[in-house]
Structure formats: structure tokens, C-alpha cells
Computed example of a mutant assay.
Amino acid sequence: MRAATTTRRGGIAALGVSVALLLGACAGGLEPATPGVDDVAPSDLAAPSDLAAPSDLPAPSDEPAPSDAPVSSGTSPAGTALAALEGLPVKGRAPKTGYSRDQFGPAWADVDHNGCDTRNDVLARDLTRTVTDPDTHDCIVLSGVLADPYTATRIDFLRGQATSTAVQIDHVVALSDAWQKGAQQLDGVARRQLANDPLNLLAVDGPTNSGKGDGDAATWLPPSKAFRCQYVARQVAVKQAYALWVTQAEHDAIAGILSRCPDEPLPSGGPAPRVDAGPDDAGSDDTSPDDTSPDDTSSDDTGPTQEPFANCDAARAAGAAPVHRGDPGYSSRLDRDGDGTACE
């Protein structure tokens, strides 16, 4: 009898605890506890077909890496400027000792023997709406329009003593820079080729070119950001063609630009003209400035290449006066009024 009483008391106590818990839950507004996984029927679980299929997951981004992301060496597509950059030697800058513009031949020689000097060849290539002088076999460009790649502006070119320098012919790899990065080891013929190679020449805004001087990509880039990929790609192509090197700072600057356009092709201008030493190397009177001046500016262009007369007395003594623009021996220095006729 005592055992039954004990059992009944235990059952009542347990029932009391359950009722108390139930009343407490209702009074406190608590929700029933969430059943455990083991309490859920199999039919309540998500079927495998309800899970996201691989095709529903975000696809890998096709966007290029940020512009400041490092470029992996050896992974650039063949034929690109970036791949060519990876093959250029990286060295320190050599001393400028011994450099002069004369080390690269006269400016501007008729290296392709077409009767026109290099400056006018480039003007004819890069300008539109050109007007040429018929008395010079249409060699000399008298006027035209330049869509300047460096500033993305239009320049109306007019040949003349006071106006020709509005458009200058830039050596994309400045000759002084080339000299300090391997060109001093080239022979004279190769250096003349470098100075007259169309791949290394662009008609550009004169004042902007003057500001460039002999800077490399680490110290100077065109103001027009839209042209920078093409600009450094051309520098890489020239340095590759003539076995020149780059400094580490220059390499990094070019790589930074090309990381924004990794598929930029390496430009090809075809084989550089062969420049033979001899009388044909006697250039015009367009001398380049000294080492403290912009590297690649030029004065008023002249006609067919020949050593200009020293003065008008020499022209008269030779029976050549008056000397017309395009005639052998003509020099803008002798043409004081800039009308195309010297020693009148």
C-alpha cells in the first residue's frame, strides 16, 4: 500500500510540473519549441531538386583585373605588347656620355630615297587634307590637319618660319633615352635607322613634344589617356626591334598602363629603311637642339636633302640663286621672308 502511494505521489508531482510549465509558457507568450530534425517527417525536407543548380550560381566574372593589379609574367597572349615587354631586358640607365644628335645621322635624311625627307614623309602620313608644293614633286607639305594623338585636339598645320613648329615629329623612343639604353652599342647605320624608322616617328603637337624632352614612360606619358596604351606599345616595339632595354621603373610604368589593355597588339611598322653611309646622308638644315633642349624638335622643314649653301654668296657663286624651296642647297635660314625663295 505504501508503494502505491509513493507511485501516485510521483505521478501527481510530474503532472504538476508539466502543468506549471505549460501555464508559464502561455503566460509568457512563448512559442512552442522548434522540433528537432529527428522530429520532422521526411516529406518536410527539401528535395535535391530544390537546391540551386550550378547554372544558377554566379558565373566567373569576365571583367579585367583592376588597373593596379599586377600582371602575371609569362601569361600574356603572344603578339601583344605586354608579352613583348616581358621579353625586354631590365637594366639600369647607362651614362649619357658621348651622346649627340649627330650620333643618329642628320635630321631629316631622305632614307628611303623617294626624294622627300623624313619629316615631310611623316607629315604626309599623319596629316589629312594636305596641300603639297608641286615644285618639289609634292614632297613638301605646305598645310594640313593633324588629329594630335598626344592631346586629342585638332591642329591646323601651316608651313612657315613662325608656324611649322606647331607640329613636330616626335621620336617615340627619344634618341637620348635610346642612347642610354643600348643604342650607343649599335653601329652608325642602325642608329640612323632608329632615328628615321616610321615606327618610331609621330607627328604631334609641338609644345607637348617639347615638354616631353627625352623622358621615358616612367617620367612622361601623353596627356590623352586614351592614347597611352598605343603609345607605350609603340615604345616596346621600337625597343624590341633595336635590342634596347628598359629600366625597372620604366618597365613597371609600361606594365601598369598595359594591364588596362592586356590585348593591345604590338605595332609593326614593317622593316626599317636601310640607311647607307655616304652623300645621301647629308640632311637638311633642320638641326636638332642640344642636350639641354627637347630631344626631338625640329625647325622649318626643307626640301630634298643636300648640304645647304653656307650663305647667299655661295649660292650666287654656284649660279643657283635664287634658290627655291625644294631645290638642292635651299635652306630656310637663307629664306628670310619665308616665301619659299632664298637669296632673291
Rank of each mutant, 00 (worst) to 15 (best):
L123C: 04
G182Y: 13
D126Y: 09
S332F: 03
R159G: 03
G326R: 04
P35Y: 05
V122R: 15
A174R: 07
C26F: 12
G206T: 10
A233H: 02
A190I: 07
K239A: 05
V323I: 04
G105Q: 09
V275A: 12
S331C: 07
W179S: 06
D337G: 05
W245V: 02
T6G: 07
L85R: 07
D281N: 04
D337K: 04
V71S: 15
C343H: 00
A203H: 06
R93V: 13
P48G: 09
S76R: 00
P271W: 01
A109L: 11
V145Y: 04
T151R: 08
A233F: 01
D38K: 11
L88W: 04
S76T: 04
D276G: 01
D205C: 05
A81L: 09
H171D: 01
G329W: 02
L85Y: 12
E86H: 14
P271V: 12
S100N: 06
G29Y: 05
T292R: 06
E86W: 06
L201D: 12
D214H: 12
W245Q: 05
A25D: 08
G36H: 04
P289L: 10
T287Q: 09
K225Q: 15
G36I: 03
R129F: 03
T80G: 01
A46E: 14
L221P: 00
C312I: 08
T97S: 15
G11C: 10
S55F: 07
L175K: 03
T80E: 01
N120G: 00
P58E: 12
A3F: 09
T163F: 03
A107R: 14
A84L: 07
Q235P: 01
